[in-house]
Design a protein around this nucleic acid. Sequence first.
DNA 1: CATGAATGAGATTTCATTCAT
DNA 2: TATGAATGAAATCTCATTCAT
Lengths: 227, 227, 227, 227
Amino acid sequence: MKSRTPVNRKPTRNPELTRRRILRAATRLFSQRGYDGASVDNIVAAAKVNKRMVYHYFGNKEGLYAAVLQEVFGRLADMELESFSRAHDPADTIRKILQTYFSFLGENPDFVALLAWENLHHGRFLASNPGVLTKTPVLQRLEDCLREGVRRGIFRPRVNVKHLLISLISIGYVYHANRYTLSQSVGLNLQSPKVLQEGLNHAVTLIQQGLLIPTGGSSAHKIRRRQ
Amino acid sequence: MKSRTPVNRKPTRNPELTRRRILRAATRLFSQRGYDGASVDNIVAAAKVNKRMVYHYFGNKEGLYAAVLQEVFGRLADMELESFSRAHDPADTIRKILQTYFSFLGENPDFVALLAWENLHHGRFLASNPGVLTKTPVLQRLEDCLREGVRRGIFRPRVNVKHLLISLISIGYVYHANRYTLSQSVGLNLQSPKVLQEGLNHAVTLIQQGLLIPTGGSSAHKIRRRQ
Amino acid sequence: MKSRTPVNRKPTRNPELTRRRILRAATRLFSQRGYDGASVDNIVAAAKVNKRMVYHYFGNKEGLYAAVLQEVFGRLADMELESFSRAHDPADTIRKILQTYFSFLGENPDFVALLAWENLHHGRFLASNPGVLTKTPVLQRLEDCLREGVRRGIFRPRVNVKHLLISLISIGYVYHANRYTLSQSVGLNLQSPKVLQEGLNHAVTLIQQGLLIPTGGSSAHKIRRRQ
Amino acid sequence: MKSRTPVNRKPTRNPELTRRRILRAATRLFSQRGYDGASVDNIVAAAKVNKRMVYHYFGNKEGLYAAVLQEVFGRLADMELESFSRAHDPADTIRKILQTYFSFLGENPDFVALLAWENLHHGRFLASNPGVLTKTPVLQRLEDCLREGVRRGIFRPRVNVKHLLISLISIGYVYHANRYTLSQSVGLNLQSPKVLQEGLNHAVTLIQQGLLIPTGGSSAHKIRRRQ
DNA sequence: CATGAATGAGATTTCATTCAT
DNA sequence: TATGAATGAAATCTCATTCAT
């Protein structure tokens, strides 16, 4: 049984702006420090809004985190819908996919970080918000590409498309997500754009080549039999 | 409404055991929840030791975290020294490296998680504890392997060994580190050992193949020119 | 992780309904959780009205509470005016009064609860809102009844009517207000209508009997002397 | 990932005293303001201890409340074991029980208040802490007393002992628990010791009388038939 | 070596209330 | 009349760390 007489100062009275400011600050801080490392206090200080507004617009910290994930992971979906629409020749398609993921990850460090946080939390938020991360349409595109490559007699048959997509994503991903540890253990400065470009070129060649029909050389033969 | 009747546990008086218990609990909790998510209280509760002991043995929370990193990242170094000792034929070596990293990451989820946390923190602890993660000896081994492959006329020349190592690590790493998000977006259950085995086989073929000298086929030619 | 997509409900534009909805929800929540336990947010959520309306119609939370008390305690006054109108024979009147209070309390758990809250708050609101709980007209009725009983030679003289009224109210009250603790300590399920009916019958006999002129028996004599 | 360097001032280092101080302050404040009305801040301020100690000793606010209930309700159990041990003559026993409850409630306003709070919360804490309020041993004592009274030919047979006990408790209880509202509606100052004493005397007479075998008077006959 | 009591700061969340529209 | 945005204070509880024994 208490009475409280709040003194108001100067309300912003711009709901959309308030919401956006919170979301933007939260995106930055969650991706930098993770769910536990970023406090609501940090976020509202960065967003320059009243703390209460987080609860007004997002319910609670988890709700805010979910909204951030939705927005950031939505960028991937948008990108995937935009790109990969037109058909190219098979080898080019492979290159295009690699390039596109590589660029996207490079330009969206928020995404890279949040994806990593999410995996570390065993996909806990994604599990409770299905639809935030959906099955990628690139899979279909890649399947068509592989089939076409085989039809033209340049690609090996029976390549598993899902595992291939994982390979394509992996190589790009690790350059950005594991920048700091890889720099140390491999001895390459992965912050450098030049090195990143080298990496992408390397990967394109490696994987395009890896899909080709093997030459009749004896050693190549040996390789295939060993698996 | 937890019951808080304090139980006077009698002192353990076993310094080495106490230390190990703390380290074990901390490894689990730090890898599960990260530095911020795991509290000293959580750790001592899991380790069933007195809280003060953490400060006794490790100075503070950061010291404990550093000790955990040292121990866990040390396993990688140990593994790298053990394996890759003697030369096989080049293609086999590639397979062996891939396989070894893949197994190591599968068997050391702590390592995978802590590596990810560390990257998310921009390698902050690794930077202040140099020597925890050193330049890998595998690089030399791989370089020898590549040179031998070229000498035997089966591998392409001018393959960048550092980027190749990154590729080798990447593919294995992502299967384990991005298990949860990849499962959703690609539609493969990466928890399944069978699927993991498929992934490894796929990767071995892809990369071995990717290192071969390309056939004289027109399309392959096109590929190389495009880069 | 509540979903907070705001739904723009269109204004009700029905002042009387809005007021009633607030009052109804507040009555329920205040009686369930007390003044401190029921928040304005709880109440407006239950009433499905805009929070500002509480302040519009009732000034503030205390005003709302006062309005609730007024309404609920008014029911007692109404009941007291309705019942006990015409004279019956004295013993019957006693029974009637007991029965009526008992039923009223059983049918108005809100009243029971708010009365208890009010006592726990040392009658704070009643003190600042005199007239909400007035001296009961039943007192006069009971006095007449006692006098008549004495005149007829069946009731003891010199029975204090105020204390008698307290006794009548007490027994009914406790069955409803202390339902939960009494059930445990006495071992009767006071939720059961059958048990409540037994209790009422028991009380009627006990008190009717208690008002009679004691027999000349030696033991009864002893009792009276002992006090 | 924050660092905090706490500055300690002057630890009390007296666990038993600290615990007692918290418990005493909590008992007072919970009984005065209820669970919701008493804040942990209020309690630690009154107890002059560090807030953290509440959580150290009692887990959380609910745990503290449970401990308070245990202590306060324990007083009733202690009282019940102490009193009512020796046999008196039946009428005296009735008086003794009434008197004892009346005194206990008068001397333990904490108990009265917490009992009321607990009922208002539908016995929520008692339900989760069974054993705090047990079936009273007075029941047995009262049963013996009734039987003896019947044997001696002074008490009516077939009086329900459980309902009688409720009656005995009720009358004493209401004088203390409903002091504020009853004062207003009946017009008696229930704060006054003199009035309380009158009330007790009234109740003793009423109930002792109510247990007697009814006289053969015609009106008394009518009463019994009406039920 | 080991214990658990003690601490101040800060975490998330809810409070009653007022503002602009 | 009605809405929902906005607010400062305070709620419960946890944090990393240090103290006396």
